[in-house]
Design a protein around this nucleic acid. Sequence first.
DNA 1: GTTATGCTTGATAATGATAATCACTTATGG
DNA 2: CCATAAGTGATTATCATTATCAAGCATAAC
Lengths: 153, 153
Amino acid sequence: MVGRFVHDKLEKGRYKLTSQRAAVLDIMMDNRGRHLSADEVFFEAKTRLPNIGIATVYRTLEKMASLEILHKTVFDQGKYRYELCDENAHHHHHIICLSCNSIIEVQDDLLNSLEKHLEEQGYRIIDHELKLYAYCPDCLQKRRDDSTPDVSS
Amino acid sequence: MVGRFVHDKLEKGRYKLTSQRAAVLDIMMDNRGRHLSADEVFFEAKTRLPNIGIATVYRTLEKMASLEILHKTVFDQGKYRYELCDENAHHHHHIICLSCNSIIEVQDDLLNSLEKHLEEQGYRIIDHELKLYAYCPDCLQKRRDDSTPDVSS
DNA sequence: GTTATGCTTGATAATGATAATCACTTATGG
DNA sequence: CCATAAGTGATTATCATTATCAAGCATAAC
């Protein structure tokens, strides 16, 4: 079910909530917190609306991003990923695990001091995007397990 | 002139410093601090080596990036940009002006506290990339000038 | 109810950046 | 000098995204 705030944003832009757009939005809401690429959305949309076209998915994602319903980012080479905008938590960062490629969100916003510093130098900071490349706890644990001599053999 | 550290890195990888590779490296060094795309490098390289092919430019940039001589990033949609790695200042961030699209480097590394926080949670942070979207002082000044009523008319 | 207007759609072609292929050249080590 | 491998330029292939276009539906006007 598409939320009220999405409805409002669509209406303000005089856009219709068609079944295709609803399907895409449902998919994004069902995958809250994940970062989907256009073809991943398309694949999932096909199971709900078999006749949907890839162009519609691209158009819908683009439109939702311009309405600030979705957030558009690029994590890997030349490929956009979209996630549902979180109404309250504007500024969040991402940890990209170098081993399993999972993307974890960080809610901490510890950049205020840096931004304040730069504002004093004459910049007006509008937004920021921080990507941390790391190994996540799971992968570190797995690596430790692998390197442990196998007792059973 | 290609620096010594580049030479060393190439030799360690058993790679030859051909005239094409030297040209690309010279271009990157002449544009220290700027962020060039493959076609910008290609265009400039053509003026020095008219016969150089675009494929060689791509291959060279890719190779230099894997040797950590160049740093590969994506600022705008689906297009890589390369800059010379600064030997001392590993971690620097970028301010991308939303008005003039200029890219300014920030040397301050105020992310240590955030990283320490995350390390305590079990992550091993390898690298980070911070992009700040802002209006630079120049553009803010220009905007102020524009909005000032024109006295002469 | 019918017609006109315009947004939306699906299929497909076009684009643009990058990667892969291939035949040819050049360097290097025995 | 020859053998092997690395490097090159031209070209093609690939892949994500965008543009085009005819057709499908709404809603508003008549």
